[in-house]
Write a protein that binds this DNA or RNA. Structure first.
Lengths: 197, 197
DNA sequence: GTCGCTTCCTAGGAGTCCTAGGCATATCCT
DNA sequence: AGGATATGCCTAGGACTCCTAGGAAGCGAC
């Protein structure tokens, strides 16, 4: 009986593929094992548990998404960088819905694993870098980063859940939302009582 | 043997309680049955399947959240309404994390059930009502609604996932984000090439 | 009281996660 | 090259899950 040549990496990728194809909640040990032509018990040599596998998928996704964003924003600044950043984010979520869902799922991930994975931290750094051109200073910078991340994540989540049922296409709303966020970053309001006009 | 007096409503509420206490993915037929002092098979008289139960929890949550928002925004306008709306949204997510997660989970919900539940549709209407004071016209209105919903949902999702690990408290960022969104709604950019300054 | 409907039960099949222990295969050492 | 060691994948099985089928016990109507 020939060996299947499994490895933690291959199991994780197979799990990510299952997640993208049929949803994150369908990522089960037996299903991943079937895809790899192997019995489910065999996976436990490479992965501690189902929870562990899901965590690895989440980290894989975070890393991949970060790389995409880094490539897209390289050499860009200001408005161009914002659009490239957001576009890469949304494209990744569309292409890999299961992986993307894993990044948001309530999973306890092994801290050692997180420490090794550069994705999440680097994603934050990239956001700060992108905002450099807008001239924001702390703590406004952190607040702006959080708002942008919220808007991006919220948009693709609602989109994936089918919450944009209105006639207008999500794509159009997306473009206009980025317009609006760009404007907002250029006119970030000062602290204190928010005045009108 | 006395009857437990189950009903679809009671089963749904029990499921929602389990979701809030230990997470949506821990909502299982057996667990809900144990909480109700009943065998799991008994639940199938009131609920079609686990998927059906999850869908009902999602609709329950949508309705509850909508009611909260309606109460909070009643009689308010402009900035006050925006803050009350967003605050009610976030408070509900904090108080009922499992229910809130259900509203976002990838669940196929019985269309007939959805038609009867006023929550989702009314939530959208409330958002439009809240924005009335800002003088936006279609299609900007729809785009603004979508951006706001994205920002609110994204913020509470990231917050729940522990993605705001920076020193600055999420609460402070939340207040400033609402400042920023209020400003943005007052200066919603015109279509076309987004200019700077 | 008795009939009939609903509720809740017991029993059981199929699928899931995970552990324990065994055999076969790859790798290293001389 | 051949043997020792380590590793990969297996079978077997327990505990738990969802869900169905069919039976018994409580409730309301008459």
């Amino acid at each position: 009986m020939a060996r299947a040549g499994l490895t933690t990496e291959r199991v994780t990728v197979a799990g990510a593929e299952v997640a993208d194809e049929v949803g994150l909640d369908q990522v089960t040990m037996s299903r991943v094992a079937r895809r790899l032509g192997v019995k489910d018990a065999s996976l436990y040599t490479h992965v501690r548990s189902l929870e562990d596998l899901r965590g690895r998928i989440a980290l894989l996704a975070a890393d991949e998404k970060t790389v995409r964003i880094a490539e897209a924003t390289a050499g860009r600044a200001g408005r161009d960088a914002l659009i490239a950043f957001a576009g890469a984010w949304r494209d990744y979520a569309h292409e890999h819905p299961g992986r993307y869902a894993a990044t948001q799922a309530p999973i306890r991930i092994d801290p050692d694993l997180v420490a090794k994975a550069p994705g999440p931290r680097r994603a934050i750094e990239l956001t700060y870098t992108m905002l450099r051109g807008y001239g924001l200073a702390e703590p406004d910078l952190t607040d702006a980063v959080r708002l942008l991340r919220s808007a991006f994540h919220g948009f693709v989540s609602l989109e994936a859940a089918g919450s944009f049922a209105h006639r207008r296409s999500p794509q159009q709303s997306w473009v206009r939302a980025l317009d609006a966020l760009h404007t907002l970053l250029e006119h970030w309001p000062p602290p204190g009582e928010g005045d009108s006009r």
